[in-house]
Amino acid sequence: MSAWLPALLAGRMIRLGWLLPLAAAGLFALISLAPIDPVQAYVGGRTSQIGPEQRDAIAAAWGLDRPAAERFASWLGQLARGDLGQSITFNAPVMQVIAARLPASMALVGLAFALSFVLGTLLGLAAGATRGRWPDRVIRTIAVVLAASPGFWVAILLVAVFAVGLGWLPACCATPPGQLASEVTPADSLRHMVLPVATLSVVGIAPLVLHTRQSLIAFLDSPAARHLSAHGASPLRLAFGPGLRHAAGVALTLHLASAGELFGGSVLAETVFAWPGLGQATVRAATGADAPLLMGIGLATLLFVFAGNLLADIAARLADPRLRRVA
């Protein structure tokens, strides 16, 4: 490996060094300014049973009676010791909540990432190779419709058709409700993943199809492709030969760089399908003003998106040697 990779990694680590505290401060400020009272969110419907003294006691126990700056400093001190604090919503350490829910989210996001990359790239290549003909028109129409379809609408549509209408697939959860973990078979787990993964994949497929198609067309129109055509290369051979690198490199870079959108999509998909992952925990933490958990998930998300962007940068340089000079 050339010198570009260590240089790139070093540069990005420096960036992460100032990005993390800045993001933490921003997140804390936003959470502090949010109009939700965590004590009220905790008390919920039991307002009549819990008096002002008890409310003050809860606030004091959570450290909410202290100024925001002091709470942030205290949180930073905890973070330095590797402690992300205690989740109010789950009544458990934040680290434990994240560790318990991360695998479920990663399974969903990872499968959706792979599926949308393979499908999006292949469909984009097929559309580019048949430019102007009916396969191109059909694929483009599907991609544009998908691009214009909100994720929640696609999720509800999938549930309505495949879970409620046809009854082929479960409408919720990661396992059949009421079953013990030891009773759940791999087939059960897979069946429960189909609809959430399909929903999440749809979010990423459309831009990939359109970008891959455009990258391939740009290559097919290039003097390099015309040079190969002049010596007998067919459009299909060009598309799935040298064109593959031109198109797939861009597609992978784009896909990795959109890790944030994928994570955002997972929040939605996990909510609709009651998937026990970080997305669902995020919604519960937000509605319950669970600052420690929101901070923990926020930082975990930042690291996830940062890693996606870093991998995108590496993929771009691996695909295009001209970029390695300016790493």
Binding site: A224, R226, H227, H231, R322
Partner: peptide, 16 residues
């Protein structure tokens, strides 16, 4: 394709 062409444009080489 009996006649092989060395084109004028240098970008006829695949940059990747």
């Amino acid at each position: 394709h009996m006649v092989a062409l060395a084109p004028q444009r240098l970008d006829a080489l695949d940059p990747l």
